[in-house]
């Protein structure tokens, strides 16, 4: 045995050992949605089992906590009903892939389709097609422009998030008596319509209070871009009074940048309502004092309403015999006082 082959054996052994060790390191505690988020709505007899309904479901597969929560919530909510069967299809990497996946879904003849499209405009034609084929479509969050493309549209209020965040910031600054406050904004992906709506709501409402944004950076909904843009923003503004960060997922990075820069002269408002953000607000040991909701619980509600549509039933508390056509969730403000109420909706 030459020295060469012995060395190979040594490295080979080390490599195998490392491989075994690493493969044991991939485990993560799986996070299941809380019972409150998935339990069937009670009252009005809506929870009583009815006709068996098959619901087709499709959402993008992005690596983002909010999107992951949408899919998990939908699956869990469907599992809570004895009369619902969920057929979930992978949406692939883009709108074209999602369209292809959806055509296989139609061939399985579901009673209702719940769809969070990659892009509402691009998949509008699919909504029209499915509706024409007699399959009601529940359009989740990213809206189809054509009202004939959906039976029900349920979405969050992006403009309203900006309004809520601006109102909270204005109130706090007024209570503190700050004159000429420096307000900063860290947006999500700037190319998305939803980011523009959030920013517009924020700017419009600040203007009503006689305030404006001093500096704005756009991150990309990821933790590392949140850290990067926040670090630069802090550098640009030596003194800040308030920050609105659009997204709690990237907020992990934003908070990291703030603590790395040893800054705490301001308060921050988040967006979406992640569990981590609510815990930070409740603990009250960071600059994060509030977050405005954009809850993925809308996926659970969409499944519940799709079931009622499939069964031809109305909503228990409403007088109408059928489910309404459009529902826009209000963007609520979570603070230290009410964080415990909202914790069950955190993702």
């Amino acid at each position: 045995m030459t020295q060469h082959s012995r060395r190979r054996l040594l490295f080979g052994g080390a490599a195998v050992g490392a491989g075994v060790l690493l493969s044991a390191c991939t485990s993560n505690e799986s996070s299941t949605p809380t019972e409150a988020q998935t339990k069937a709505a009670d009252g009005g007899g809506n929870a009583e089992p009815g006709k068996q309904v098959t619901i087709g479901f499709s959402a993008p597969a992005e690596s983002h906590g909010w999107i992951a929560a949408i899919t998990n919530n939908a699956k869990a909510q469907a599992g809570a009903y004895s009369d619902v069967e969920l057929k979930s299809v992978e949406a692939g990497a883009d709108a074209a892939a999602q369209r292809a996946a959806l055509s296989t879904l139609i061939s399985q003849k579901p009673d209702v389709i719940v769809l969070l499209p990659f892009d509402g405009k691009e998949l509008n034609s699919f909504g029209l097609e499915a509706m024409a084929a007699g399959i009601p479509v529940v359009n989740l969050d990213r809206a189809f422009p054509d009202a004939k493309a959906y039976r029900l549209q349920i979405k969050g209020d992006n403009y309203g998030m900006g309004v809520s965040a601006a109102n909270f910031i204005a109130e706090q600054l007024k209570a503190k008596g700050v004159s000429n406050p420096v307000i900063a904004e860290i947006a999500g992906m700037d190319a998305l319509e939803l980011t523009q709506e959030r920013t517009k709501g924020f700017n419009d409402t600040l203007a009503q209070h006689g305030l404006k944004v001093a500096n704005r950076r756009a991150a990309e909904f990821t933790v590392d871009t949140g850290q990067r843009e926040a670090a630069q923003l802090l550098q640009a503004l030596p003194k800040i009074d308030a920050i609105w960060n659009h997204d709690d997922d990237q907020g992990v990075g934003v908070l990291a940048a703030i603590s790395q820069a040893n800054r705490n002269e301001f308060f921050m408002v988040g967006g979406a309502g992640s569990k981590k953000a609510m815990e930070d607000i409740q603990a009250d040991n960071t600059v994060l004092k509030a977050t405005v909701t954009y809850s993925p619980s809308m996926a659970s509600s969409a499944i519940s309403l799709a079931r009622l549509i499939g069964q031809g039933r109305g909503m228990g508390d409403l007088v109408e015999l059928q489910v309404p056509k459009e529902i826009v969730l209000a963007s609520e403000t979570i603070t230290k006082e009410n964080a415990s109420d909202y914790m069950k909706l955190g993702f």
Partner: peptide, 15 residues
């Protein structure tokens, strides 16, 4: 280094 900066990691980072 990036994990330390963001105090976290996710599949979409270092895009």
């Amino acid at each position: 280094m990036l994990t330390a900066q963001a105090t976290s990691a996710q599949a979409g980072m270092a895009n």
